[in-house]
Amino acid sequence: MEFCLVRENSLRGDLIANEEMEELELSGPSFLAGYQYRSYRVSMVHKFKSNIEVQLGISGDKVEIDPVSQPSSKIWRPQKAVSYEVDSIAACDLIDGKHAGKSVFRLTYVTGNDFKHHDFESDAATASEVATKISHILELRSSHVRQGYLFNRTRRGSRKM
């Protein structure tokens, strides 16, 4: 692969026409768009307590989960801010399209030798955007964690048949 940076008004090199460039930009997420930091406001789904509103920050290197605000409770521990390296993330999949335009997506990560996950709920467009963004980053960075997860997933799927 070769990377060449050419100024827009330069006459050096092969230039792509503006119309062709617009088509390339509109045809899908660009290579660099996956690595730009973006934050989303979503709800973290818990089994035994109410959902917690968090800010999910995604960049090319990390996924950060920061609680927005939490009511004080003596029974439950407050949600702490968590950060995961992209190399420790195995997958991000849409799980469920709920009623009223809400969707649930699952972020699967590895700690030690165990795969764990966090479930998040948001509107359908945001859930789809987050899952797509993380999936693109994971495809570009192909880590051992991701490869092992996909191998186990296909092996489990073949056993069910």
Rank of each mutant, 00 (worst) to 15 (best):
R141I: 01
C92R: 01
H144W: 10
G13E: 09
D119I: 00
D114K: 05
S39M: 02
K47C: 03
F48Y: 10
H136K: 11
L11H: 10
S30D: 04
S135H: 06
V45M: 03
M21S: 08
M161A: 13
A100D: 10
E2P: 07
M21Q: 09
G112L: 04
T111M: 07
I16Q: 13
L11P: 06
L32A: 14
I52S: 11
T132R: 12
I52H: 03
A127C: 15
N113R: 03
I95L: 14
A127Q: 04
E85H: 14
A90S: 12
Y35K: 13
R141H: 05
K62M: 14
D87W: 07
S158P: 00
K98E: 09
V68M: 12
F48Q: 11
D96C: 14
V145K: 05
K62F: 15
R141P: 03
H46E: 03
H46A: 07
K116S: 08
I65L: 12
I52M: 06
K160G: 08
F31S: 13
F105W: 01
G157D: 10
R153A: 08
T111L: 09
D123R: 04
L15T: 09
R38K: 15
F151T: 13
S30M: 11
D119V: 00
Y40Q: 02
V82A: 06
R146F: 02
G101W: 00
K47D: 06
V6P: 06
H46M: 04
